[in-house]
């Protein structure tokens, strides 16, 4: 069981780091949102799942509470993260930021 927790923590750390690096590496707002949202959500799923496994494995009142609360935190994160990034992308586009080197921009044509 320990090995499973280590693997999950490692995957979570790697993908969270990938999100942070993507934030630095990509050229404009939209591609940064791509990298940051996808990678941090995926990494957080694995990191928090490691905590959930650890909580259920330890068992009892405290372990169970830890696992259930971590699961609820994961649920809220899954719900709010894509919605927040969607709102940011929409706000950025309405605020007049154009995608970098875009081959097509249908949303701009609409206005």
């Amino acid at each position: 069981m320990n090995v499973l927790i280590y693997i999950f923590l490692a995957i979570g750390a790697v993908f969270n780091g990938l999100g942070a690096v993507a934030l630095l590496r990509f050229p404009d707002v939209y591609t940064r949102i791509h990298g940051a949202t996808k990678c941090t959500t995926f990494g957080s799923i694995f990191s928090i799942l490691a905590v959930v496994i650890y909580g259920f494995w330890r068992g009892g009142g405290q372990g169970g509470t830890l696992a259930v609360h971590a699961l609820i935190a994961l649920l809220f994160l899954l719900l709010t993260n894509p919605t927040g990034s969607h709102a940011l992308a929409r706000g950025a586009h309405r605020g007049g930021i154009r995608p970098f080197r875009a081959v097509v921009d249908r949303l701009e044509e609409k206005r």
């Binding site: 590496r25 939209y30 996808k38 990678c39 995926f42 586009h93 995608p99 080197r101 081959v103």
Partner: peptide, 22 residues
């Protein structure tokens, strides 16, 4: 989602993008 993350990893390393809003 797993495929998406490997995709982003690939693009972070190579920097190969062709963006647009469809």
């Amino acid at each position: 989602m797993a495929r998406a993350n490997l995709d982003v990893a690939f693009r972070v390393i190579t920097g190969r993008i062709r963006p647009g809003i469809v």
